[in-house]
């Protein structure tokens, strides 16, 4: 019974989102909603590796871009539909995650992080020199007609993103509360001790990097249809790396809720700031909030709330 609860929740959320689109409403809501949802997926994905397992990934953009460019290639080559793109993007990005997982054999802590950043730049360079997908200048594509039941493509993408976000969060919830999640926490706390206590550290790390990479890739697959102009500069933007680690850090890294809280807060704030102030200023705010949180509240908002509760209950 308990195990099926998240499934029903995911389904319920998606149906609710669909019904919401039937109400019509402003296009901008779907556009902004997509932006926040996309970051729920990215932050949740980042947290599976960074928060649960303790490996800080600076290369979110590399995985996101793998998803986006897989989708683009499929569009160019076969005019594939979005569900096909998502599955393919999940597979390729998951494979890249598996590769990064083997890096953890030799690289711990800081070196792992720098390697992921390096990966991101190398991939960007390769893609910038790949003429088929538009090289450095990028490529614009035309959205197909919106599928039946949807008034516009924006609404379709919005509902798809709701599904992806709900599914990612459900997965993160499951991992956190499973034996696997406790094994990952042991690795984060002390990898040698975990191995000595019978935790198959390599296998679990590979699981975490693959799942994390896979979800990041999934977040990137609808991107070509969302922006319709795919160019390396925006797909590989450092914003993805900063945001996807800032959001869990601000929300709290040890639970599934943290990244969601962080993504909703920071994502919404950025959308609002972009509209009302300027996009540079909103990024500045992200940076400052991130630094303030890692310094002053390392457990994030979840940690602050927990501490508040503890004090009350005493």
């Amino acid at each position: 019974m308990k195990k099926t609860v998240p499934l029903w929740v995911v389904l319920g959320v998606v149906v609710a989102a669909f019904l919401f689109t039937r109400l019509g409403g402003n296009r901008y809501i779907y556009f902004a909603g997509y932006f926040v949802l996309q970051y729920i997926v990215l932050a949740t994905a980042w947290n599976v590796l960074g928060g649960y397992t303790g490996y800080v990934n600076f290369g979110t953009a590399a995985f996101f871009a793998t998803g986006a460019y897989t989708a683009l290639v499929l569009i160019l080559a076969f005019k594939a539909t979005l569900p096909v793109q998502i599955v393919a993007g999940a597979l390729t990005a998951g494979l890249l995650g598996l590769g990064i997982g083997y890096l953890t054999l030799r690289l711990r802590g800081v070196f792992f992080s720098i390697a992921t950043l390096a990966l991101s730049v190398v991939l960007q360079t390769v893609v910038s020199n790949w003429e088929y997908v538009g090289g450095g200048k990028g490529l614009s594509i035309i959205r197909p007609k919106a599928p039946a039941l949807f008034a516009s493509h924006a609404e379709y993408l919005f509902v798809v993103m709701v599904l992806l976000a709900a599914a990612s969060v459900a997965l993160a919830w499951w991992v956190q509360n499973s034996r696997v999640g406790r094994g990952l926490a042991a690795i984060r706390d002390n990898e040698e001790a975990a191995e000595c206590m019978g935790v198959p550290t390599l296998r679990l790390k590979l699981f975490a990097t693959t799942l994390s990479g896979c979800l990041m890739g999934v977040a990137g697959t609808p991107f070509p249809y969302y922006v319709t102009l795919v160019e390396p500069g925006s797909v590989f933007s450092l914003d993805y790396a900063v945001n996807s680690l800032a959001m869990p850090m601000i929300g709290g890294t040890t639970t599934w809720v943290g990244p969601v809280i962080g993504a909703v807060l920071l994502g919404t704030a950025q959308q609002v700031a972009t509209v009302t102030i300027s996009s540079e200023l909103n990024l500045l705010i992200v940076g400052i909030v991130l630094v303030a949180f890692v310094m002053l509240a390392p457990q994030g908002i979840v940690g602050l709330v927990q501490r508040l509760f503890h004090r009350r209950s005493r």
């Binding site: 406790r182 094994g183 926490a185 706390d189 002390n190 935790v199």
Partner: peptide, 25 residues
């Protein structure tokens, strides 16, 4: 370990659950 290496984010009880769930699986 010579210098204890506990799982710092867990309670004492949870520390023991890791080997019980993995080594003694």
């Amino acid at each position: 370990f010579q210098i204890p290496r506990p799982f710092t984010s867990m309670t004492v009880l949870e520390n023991l659950c890791i080997p019980l769930e993995y080594a003694a699986h």
